[in-house]
């Protein structure tokens, strides 16, 4: 399986602050990959490193040769018209697909003579996406493309992206801090917290192997070895676990329920502080 992006021990430092540190990740080709994590997890830094916008401070990163990048807040030139943006793309790229760009603009009902400053947020995002698509990349990276859009524009944008990916064979890497955005679009998910990949895999497989267990209170040390504990919550009498396992759960003490993608991601985001707390306690002993 070829990968569209593979990083090893990747780190980027701004002055004294590490925006990303010791990040190792491998993303297989042929997917629409959702990169999700809390603000400040290093998503933007990772994506900027992937498209060559940044140079790593340490470690290595390899990507496909032809990477398209749609930056956060989908910047376009306010003073240039829609048509001039297409000219820009055509002049600055060798494999520019002019027909695709023109068709998309027509489909979106954008006036080619319109200055970009007069476009709505959703239209601007669509224009930026068109530029990214017509470049005919092998990997298209989008950094929080819908974060600043209203719900309707958000849905239209993601729909447009899905249509485009269905038609062509290129990979997409899309970041968001909202799982709901990714749920409809992505078939592969990477959860990044504090520069670390918490979990990565195909969405269907992730959903099939993660379970929520609810039952009488039980200590974590008494959980079976083939169940990887993602998160745990205890009250005086009850325990709630999110576990990953490929084996069926047979213990009758547990009420087993499936997780939504959002629950799953939140469980991984919760996990880190829990681990840290434990590490802190151990250090005290």
């Amino acid at each position: 399986m070829t990968s569209v992006l593979s990083a090893h021990g990747l780190g980027k430092r701004y002055g004294r602050r590490w925006a990303l540190r010791d990040c190792t990740i491998d993303i297989p080709a042929g997917h629409v990959v959702g990169l999700v994590g809390p603000n400040g997890a290093g998503k933007t830094t990772l994506l900027k490193l992937a498209c060559g916008q940044l140079v790593p401070t340490e470690g290595t990163i390899e990507t496909m040769a032809k990477v398209g990048f749609v930056a956060q807040d989908t910047p376009v030139y306010a003073g240039l018209t829609v048509a001039e943006h297409l000219t820009l793309g055509a002049r600055l790229n060798s494999g520019w697909d002019a027909a695709l760009a023109r068709e998309r603009i027509a489909q979106l009902d954008l006036d080619p003579g319109q200055k970009a400053r007069k476009l709505s947020g959703g239209q601007r995002a669509q224009l930026a996406l068109t530029l990214g698509l017509a470049k005919r990349p092998e990997l298209l990276i989008l950094d929080e493309p819908v974060a600043s859009l209203d719900p309707l524009a958000r849905r239209e944008f993601l729909q447009g992206l899905m249509e485009a990916t269905a038609a062509a064979e290129f990979s997409v890497l899309l970041s968001s801090h909202l799982v709901a955005d990714l749920e409809r679009t992505c078939d592969y998910l990477v959860v990044l917290v504090d520069s670390r990949v918490q979990v990565a895999g195909e969405v269907e497989e992730l959903l099939a192997t993660h379970h929520r267990l609810t039952g009488p209170r039980r200590d974590e040390s008494r959980m079976p070895g083939d169940q990887y504990v993602v998160s745990a919550r205890h009250t005086d009498r009850q325990s709630t676990y999110v576990v990953r396992t490929s084996a069926p759960i047979l213990d009758p003490a547990w009420a087993v329920s499936r997780l939504t993608l959002e629950d799953l991601v939140l469980a991984y985001m919760e996990k880190r502080p829990a681990e840290r707390r434990r590490a802190g306690l151990e250090a005290l002993r």
Binding site: Q53, F69, A71, Q72, D73, P75, G89, K135
Partner: peptide, 13 residues
């Protein structure tokens, strides 16, 4: 300031 460096520096040049 406009963030357009992210647009233009990710084209083919």
């Amino acid at each position: 300031e406009a963030g357009t460096h992210l647009l233009v520096w990710n084209q083919g040049v």
